[in-house]
Amino acid sequence: MDKEKYKKLVDNCCPKENVLINTIKSFFIGGFMGIIGQGLIDFYSCVFEIPTKDAAPYMTITLIIVGSLLTAFGFFDKVVSWANAGIIVPITGFAHAMTSAAMEYRKEGFILGIGANIFKLTGSVILYGVVAAYVFGLLRFLMFGG
């Protein structure tokens, strides 16, 4: 059987994901995450009596801890299979990637296991973020002076 026929056969047998329903689900879950984020910002700025701008890091830290704990207890994968991008794109996805890498490679030891692999999935985010920020920051700094 040649490759194209085989590919067609595989495509026919694979379960088709409903793009529209997935998109609507992601929209509502993502939107809900946005509301939680804004709610946390308002909550912290009210409790600690700080301006809303300074409350954003507290919100990020809270979401990271929640995402990591959900991953550790094994709930996150179930949520992802249902919510898809709605929970991967918010900062919880970043926390999930790092915690799951740490848990996965724990058995290979401290240095070559956790140490070498903790950034396995999140390394790309940090790498391309830093490279892009440096290139675009330099361009903007040279052209507009900051």
């Binding site: 993502g30 990637a97 790309s124």
Partner: peptide, 24 residues
Amino acid sequence: CGIICAIAQIILDSTKLTPGHITA
């Protein structure tokens, strides 16, 4: 936040990119 996640979902479903590609 909903629109950003919906765009990510459309890219995820219609191309072969993985969540790692999307976040980067």
